[in-house]
């Protein structure tokens, strides 16, 4: 089993079959995680480098753990821990990765397209762990995995993504992935945080959250960044909470079977009330668990591709 491309940069170019394959592989990986010995030798001798140019705790830990569960050698390079800033240094860093014998480089970067740039410049597989507002495919996959696990399917499921769509790579990757597997996707948020012409991605747009909530199976609530308020994109956190925050009253609207998701980290009491985050319907901690399984699946599939290529070449 393997992926056809060297890199995994986003879901825009992935086929439904590829996405299914990743989700199915993750099922087996999740099984590993439930054993008493949570480690398999699959990637022994392989080197995975986590290259994080942006602060991240959860995603980095998740990738780190995923690689370790597969017995790969892992190295973590953080922006704060090195002199890498931008431009040519990204290229130089890439070359350094190459020389260090990386098989897979996991990259997180604040600039859209950074993963693509890296992929073009190194032979190792590149796994995008989030690039600017462009893509965060592993988050989308773990969200999809969670939906499929809880609701039994993705096709026909109605998913509402709430919040700062404009700056969200999570929203974009979710839209591409979910649409490919036949889900019905809507977005809701203040018009200032809805990017232009997003309807062309095949989603419904709501600026009235209460209206959007009337018919949905899943709500995926995005983190609202304080800096968006400072940039004048919405008036105040207080108003945001009132108009776009997920509270108990709104939870009642969507019914007991609907799932509550959040990619984290949460601003409790702002975009999501604690009682919602901790409700029976919340699958937020399950998302974290599934994240490790999805990342194991991708590392396995990418490293598998490499092994196949070595034989071919």
């Amino acid at each position: 089993m393997s992926l056809t491309k060297k890199d995994f940069l986003g879901l825009y170019n992935s086929s439904a079959a590829e996405i299914e394959e990743i989700l199915n592989t993750a099922v087996a990986m999740k099984d590993v995680l439930t054993r008493s010995v949570k480690k398999v030798p699959t990637l022994r001798g392989k080197t995975v480098i986590n290259l994080f140019f942006e602060p991240s705790t959860r995603t980095r830990f998740s990738f780190n753990l995923a690689a370790k569960r597969l017995s790969a050698d892992v190295m973590n390079i953080n922006k704060s821990a090195s002199s890498i800033v931008k431009g040519e240094s990204l290229l130089d860093t890439a070359r350094t990765m190459e020389v260090m014998g990386a098989d897979v480089v996991v990259i997180r970067h604040s600039a859209a397209g950074a993963a693509q740039f890296l992929a073009k410049n190194i032979r190792a597989s590149v796994l995008n762990a989030g690039d600017g507002a462009h893509a965060h495919p592993t988050q989308a996959l773990l969200d999809m995995y969670t939906i499929r696990e809880k609701l039994g399917k993705i096709e026909g499921v109605k998913v509402l993504i709430i919040g700062d769509i404009a700056h969200s790579r999570v929203a974009r990757s979710n839209i591409w992935g979910l649409k490919k597997l036949g889900a019905k996707v809507s977005v809701a948020g203040p018009q200032t945080l809805i990017p232009l012409e997003i309807e062309k991605m095949g989603v419904k747009v709501y600026t009235d959250l209460d209206q959007a909530l009337q018919e949905t199976d899943v709500v995926n609530i995005l983190r609202i960044q304080l800096e968006r308020q400072e940039a004048g994109l919405f008036p105040s956190l207080r108003e945001y909470r009132e108009i776009y925050g997920m509270n108990e009253k709104r939870l009642d609207k969507i019914g007991k079977k609907a799932l509550v998701m959040h990619p984290g980290p949460m601003n409790r009491g702002i975009e999501i009330e604690s009682s919602v985050a901790d409700s029976q319907q919340s699958v937020i901690t399950e998302q974290v668990r599934n994240g490790v399984a999805i990342r194991m699946a991708l590392l396995y599939l990418l490293a598998g591709r490499e092994a196949n290529n070595e034989q071919i070449n």
């Binding site: 397209g113 690039d131 507002a133 462009h134 974009r172 990017p195 232009l196 012409e197 062309k200 991605m201």
Partner: peptide
Amino acid sequence: HEGYYSTIFGLQG
């Protein structure tokens, strides 16, 4: 340019 492509590329328009 701000439009569909800036939206899907995740670049500021």
